[in-house]
Simulated assay, not measured.
Amino acid sequence: MTYKNFPMVPRVIFGRGSFNQLNEILAPKRLNMNAPFIFLVDDVFKNNVWLTSRISLSYDDKIVFISTKEEPKTSQVDELVEDIILMSKERPSGIIGIGGGALLDLAKAVSIMITNEGEAKDYQGWDLVKNPAIYHVGIPTISGTGAEVSRTTVLTGPDRKLGINSDYTPFDQVILDSELTKDVPKNQWFYTGMDCYIHCIESLTGTYLNAFSESYGEMALDLCKQIFLEDNLSTIDAQEKLMMASWHGGMSIAYSQVGVAHAMSYGLSYLLGIKHGVGNCIVFDHLEEFYPEGVEVFKQMKIKHNITLPQGICSSLSDKEFDIMIDVALSLEPLWENAIGNNWKKTITREKLRDLYQKM
């Protein structure tokens, strides 16, 4: 048997206010005066001096504000890489992603594509990247996706939604400062937190489960239950715990895989542009057949936090549109194999998936 030899994030700093150490972390990594650091920052922080004033720009360093209204696309990665190459005298010293999962995925993808030829869509899949990425740093400002720790960068391409899964994808450095999550709107906090919760349920009930993924998954699941079901946590405590749940949830799927909710939400996202966290929740709400206990607890969390999920999003789709979503979902074979086993094709038919989508 051959075991996977996974890379992990080699350096991580954790603690409220640790974002203030960014400049001293970056200084030794600067290649020279003409090799800038490029900061990719969620544009919700565009007028947020509290955050942006703490980023020290030297020489040709640039902040690029990026809208996350849509999920990250391979074409967006290609445009960013082109812009960065045009604006820099030399190859950048590093890419720093500051934001939620979308921004972190973009930062990972851009750092890979600066050193690899072709277009980002050519690398969607498993282990297709040939050259190491440039130095890249991830700084999450919302917790739950696990993008800060994972070896994938999830992108919507011309043909499918699929990650660039490679050993060169993980960040070289991560800064976990829970203070950066203090202004996250409640719905977004819930949806992204549920992404972590669903990671854990899919990992812990999957056929790929092993002691490595189980230990991380159980820790993250316990933290999620504390955060979303208990009443006695302080705000700061809840922010810190969710940041660690996200980290451990991401680690739990590093050595296993996600499952039905993710496979089907990729279809929703590809066709309808539905954000990843919301899509996972919409799908998971209908998956009692696959995850009975997990869905029951999810519904309790939904009621406790007064969350109303979008309804009827598939009600007016054509046969062709259903087929597009089903094709995307079925293409994610490792997810189905983890969820159901080697013979998953016997139970997961096109009719079965259409029936599920029609409930959403």
Results as ranks from 00 to 15, higher is better:
Asn5Met: 10
Phe6Gln: 11
Ile13Ser: 09
Gly15Gln: 11
Arg16Lys: 13
Asn20Phe: 01
Gln21Lys: 13
Glu24Tyr: 01
Lys29Ile: 02
Arg30Asp: 04
Phe39Trp: 06
Asp43Phe: 06
Lys46Cys: 05
Val49Gln: 14
Ser53Cys: 05
Ser56Cys: 09
Val64Met: 14
Glu71Met: 03
Thr74Lys: 06
Val77Glu: 07
Asp78Asn: 15
Asp78Glu: 05
Glu79His: 14
Glu79Gln: 14
Met87Arg: 12
Ser88Leu: 05
Arg91Pro: 00
Gly101His: 03
Gly101Met: 04
Leu104Arg: 00
Asp105Arg: 02
Leu106Pro: 02
Ala107Tyr: 01
Ile112Pro: 10
Ile112Tyr: 06
Met113Val: 08
Thr115Gln: 14
Thr115Cys: 12
Thr115His: 07
Glu117His: 08
Asp122Thr: 04
Trp126Thr: 13
Asp127Lys: 12
Asp127Arg: 10
Leu128Trp: 03
Val129Phe: 05
Asn131Asp: 06
Ile139Asp: 12
Glu148Ile: 10
Thr153Leu: 01
Arg160Trp: 00
Gly163Ala: 11
Ser166Arg: 04
Asp167Phe: 04
Pro170Asp: 03
Gln173His: 13
Leu176Asn: 11
Glu179Asp: 14
Glu179His: 09
Pro185His: 10
Asn187Val: 03
Tyr197Lys: 02
Ser203Tyr: 00
Leu204Pro: 04
Thr205Ile: 03
Thr207Cys: 13
Leu209Gln: 13
Asn210Glu: 08
Asp222Gly: 04
Cys224Arg: 04
Lys225Pro: 05
Asn232Asp: 15
Ser246Gln: 05
His262Asp: 11
Ser265His: 09
Tyr270His: 13
Gly273Met: 00
Lys275Gly: 06
Gly277Leu: 01
Cys281Ile: 03
Cys281Gln: 06
Val283Cys: 07
His286Thr: 11
Glu289Pro: 02
Phe298Val: 01
Gln300Asn: 10
Lys304Gly: 08
His305Gly: 09
His305Asp: 07
Gly312Lys: 12
Cys314Ile: 10
Ile324Met: 08
Asp327Val: 00
Asp327Gly: 02
Ala329Met: 00
Ser331His: 03
Leu332Lys: 15
Leu335His: 10
Trp336Phe: 15
Gly341Thr: 01
Trp344His: 07
Thr349Lys: 06
Glu351Thr: 13
Tyr357Phe: 15
Gln358Arg: 13
